[in-house]
Each structure stands twice: as C-alpha cells, then as structure tokens.
Computed example of a mutant assay.
Amino acid sequence: MSNKTLSYYNQNAQSFSDSTLHVDMSALYSEFLPLIPKHGHILDAGCGSARDAAYFKQQGFTVSAFDASTELAKIASTHLQQPVAVKTFQQLDCSNQYDGIWCCASLLHVPKNELPQVFLNLQHALKPNGVLYVSFKYGDSEREHNGREFTDLNEEGLTALITQHTELKIIKQWQSVDQRPERESEVWLNALIKAVPVL
C-alpha cells in the first residue's frame, strides 16, 4: 500500500469504519464459509473495521486479523475484542496456518507489479486445500481516486495472475454490485481460490 493510501486510512479511520461496519455481506459469506471446516482458522487480511472477522468469530471460527493502517487496527481490535496486527500483505510471512483467508476489498491497494509475490505469500499461509476469497473493483487499470491508489482487475487479469502460481486454482469468479448506499453503480470482481498442493 502506498504511503498516500495509508495516510488516507489513518486520517479517515473512524469515518471509513463507520461507513462499512453495517454493510450486508451475507451473500459473500454464504459463498466462502461453507468451504471452511467447522471451527477452522480464518485470517481477515486487510480487515478494516473487522466487520467480517467479528462475524466469523460469532459463527464459531478461530479468527486472526491484520490491517496496514495503525488507526484502523486500533478500531478493529476494539470491535473484534482481540488484538489486530498492524502489517501489510508484503509482510505476511507464515506457512500452513489458515483454513481460509478473507481479502475483502483489501488487495486492491497492492500495486499490480507486487501482486504476484503477495499471492505467493497468501498461498504459503494457507493450509493444503485452504480457500482464499478476494475482491477487486472491476476493471483493468491502476488509478488514483479520492487520495487512494487502486489496482482494478477483471476475470482475465486475475486469471493471468493466479496461473503464475502452480498451487492456486480459481474455483469461482463472479461480479457483484456495491452494497453501500449510493454506490450501486460500482461493480466488484469476486473470486474463490483454492490452495491445491502439487503432488
């Protein structure tokens, strides 16, 4: 995440958290959670307000979370009632740890040329047959908008990225519209990706 984007989130942490906390995510949860073992360990990567991590915790999953923004991590820790780490996707350095990793509207701030390494970090962090959920704003450009930098992806762009990783396999891609009020015109690319160990 660029310094510009990071400072945006640190300066607007409370208003960003407030605007996202009560968005209805049930349609996405229903795609992801059935693929995770009961009481499995889920990492909410780039967790923002920890809205999703808190829901997963309520459903009986073991949850870990991190965010690159110090200020958002503080808010998220309070909401989740457990520590939220301050780190970036580039700093994710563990192996064979999570049954699922949830990257909801968070990877979109990683510069496109850094995404291959970031997907490798995510692949390593997943257990064999673990599942990764990702979402990007729909498109094929890198752009700046309202003080933040975005990497937009479409199906072709994401497929090209994932095929670089022998152990990652896309199991589903679909488009959805933004659930926030007045944002219905924004289209998102969603994908479920599985870590399939090469024998």
Score class of each variant (00 low, 15 high):
Q14T: 13
P111F: 00
I101C: 05
A73N: 06
T20F: 11
Y55C: 10
Y138C: 09
Q14R: 13
H145C: 13
P128E: 00
C94H: 04
C47M: 02
F66S: 06
P83F: 01
P116W: 04
L107I: 03
R51I: 02
L115Y: 07
F66E: 05
Q14W: 11
P37F: 01
L115Q: 08
L21H: 07
F119G: 00
L35F: 08
F136Y: 13
L43N: 08
V84I: 08
K74Q: 13
Y138V: 08
N96Q: 15
S49A: 09
K87W: 04
V84T: 08
H124T: 11
F61E: 06
N12V: 07
T70Q: 14
V110F: 04
R143E: 15
A68E: 09
N12Q: 11
F32C: 01
N113K: 13
C103S: 11
E142I: 10
Y133M: 10
Y98D: 05
Y98G: 06
K137P: 04
L33P: 01
G46V: 07
A105S: 11
N113T: 13
V86H: 02
Y55R: 11
P116F: 05
N146P: 07
V63G: 00
H109S: 06
G100R: 01
K137I: 06
A76I: 07
Q59N: 10
Q91D: 13
V86D: 09
Y133T: 03
S17L: 09
N96Y: 14
Q123K: 13
H124F: 11
Q97K: 14
S135T: 12
F119A: 04
T88H: 04
H124G: 01
S69H: 05
Y55F: 14
